[in-house]
Amino acid sequence: MRGAQRQRLRFMESVAYWEGFVRRQRLSDTFNLNIEGLSRDFTLYRSLYPGNLNYDTSRKGYEPTAQFKPQIASGSAEEYLGLLRLHCEATAPELVQGLPGPMVAAHVPLQAGGVSANTLKDVTRAIVAGSGLTGMYQSMRVPKPEPVELWPAALVFSGYRWHVRAYDASKGMHRDCVLARLSVKPTSNEPPEIPPDQAWERNITVIARPSSRWSDPQKNAIAAEYAMQKHRGKWQWKVSLRECLVPYFLYLHRLDRPISQQRIELVDPDFAKRHGFADE
């Protein structure tokens, strides 16, 4: 099965499973192919996985049988919700294939971008090539932009904005820079001797639980939201993160706030003091 055809069959199966029905027209609109050609895809799918889809002559489309089991798609809720989120957050939804279709979905937007295309291009190329960048960066710790010489290593999404993880030769340290506050260009400078980024290489486990202020039924509901597991009869959420990402995790889940403002709380109450950070 070719890659493009497999993608169409995965989409077909996923839509049928989650929405209960799929027509050839849906695939035609999604993949910009003629309906007649797509008939071969449905025929192939039904020959490979007989008993998964039935054709409904009255609705002129395919619906999952009672014995349906996902064969190409994962069948996980995260897969379908991820596709919906991708469509909702796309600045050009028509470029995100296939969703939402008849499905209705919406999202609360994050910051409206602000990242320069040229900056992103220079950063991503520097990461791939192992080269450096020079320019200016506006930290929130100082009132004016500062010069930087960065040797980027990775991009980091903190849950609400994008950063570049880089060695800053001008400060002699590894740091995260918010992409939208960065103005840089490639440099021909020779790379400095860059020490290991221990905060990137070292992992730390964060352990959280439903806040103690909730009732037992509320704790159970929160535990289900976070896919928590029982440990010695108590709900726990264990997450292993690169050490430099832990402050973002604490901020995103309000774990660095007073307990009265938390839906979940840290098992170790001093953890946020040790691993929090001043926003920059």
Rank of each mutant, 00 (worst) to 15 (best):
249 F>K: 09
221 A>L: 05
219 K>W: 05
239 V>E: 10
199 A>V: 13
226 Y>P: 08
192 P>T: 09
241 L>P: 04
224 A>Y: 02
183 S>Q: 13
238 K>H: 11
187 T>M: 03
203 N>Y: 03
251 Y>M: 07
192 P>K: 13
206 V>W: 14
197 D>G: 08
185 K>M: 02
239 V>M: 07
215 S>I: 06
179 L>Y: 07
226 Y>E: 05
178 V>T: 10
242 R>M: 04
250 L>C: 09
192 P>F: 03
228 M>R: 09
246 V>C: 10
192 P>C: 12
245 L>G: 01
194 I>Y: 14
240 S>V: 09
173 M>Y: 13
231 H>Q: 11
260 S>W: 11
214 W>N: 13
239 V>I: 08
239 V>S: 12
231 H>D: 09
255 L>V: 14
211 S>D: 04
240 S>H: 10
190 E>M: 10
199 A>F: 06
198 Q>K: 09
246 V>S: 12
254 R>F: 03
234 K>W: 00
246 V>A: 09
226 Y>V: 05
196 P>D: 08
206 V>D: 13
187 T>I: 01
231 H>G: 00
241 L>S: 04
221 A>W: 03
219 K>A: 03
174 H>Y: 13
252 L>E: 06
207 I>R: 15
225 E>Q: 15
252 L>R: 15
187 T>G: 12
227 A>P: 02
214 W>K: 15
194 I>D: 08
198 Q>Y: 01
262 Q>T: 08
235 W>M: 07
197 D>R: 15
184 V>A: 06
184 V>S: 05
249 F>N: 01
261 Q>C: 00
196 P>E: 13
178 V>S: 03
255 L>D: 08
252 L>M: 10
251 Y>G: 04
178 V>M: 06
197 D>W: 15
236 Q>E: 12
218 Q>Y: 03
206 V>C: 13
254 R>Y: 05
230 K>C: 00
240 S>L: 09
248 Y>K: 06
263 R>S: 12
251 Y>L: 07
180 A>R: 13
172 G>A: 07
251 Y>P: 02
213 R>I: 00
222 I>Q: 05
173 M>T: 15
182 L>K: 12
220 N>I: 06
238 K>F: 14
182 L>Y: 08
239 V>Y: 10
217 P>N: 13
249 F>M: 03
257 R>G: 00
175 R>T: 02
216 D>M: 15
253 H>I: 02
224 A>G: 04
191 P>W: 04
214 W>D: 06
189 N>M: 06
202 R>E: 11
244 C>Q: 07
180 A>K: 11
239 V>G: 05
186 P>S: 05
198 Q>E: 08
203 N>M: 09
187 T>W: 00
262 Q>H: 05
226 Y>N: 10
188 S>T: 10
220 N>W: 01
201 E>Q: 15
223 A>T: 08
249 F>Q: 03
172 G>V: 01
212 S>H: 10
236 Q>V: 04
238 K>A: 00
184 V>T: 07
229 Q>T: 15
180 A>Y: 11
207 I>F: 15
213 R>F: 06
199 A>T: 15
199 A>Q: 14
179 L>K: 11
213 R>H: 14
211 S>W: 07
200 W>A: 12
184 V>H: 06
202 R>M: 01
177 C>T: 00
176 D>Y: 05
185 K>H: 04
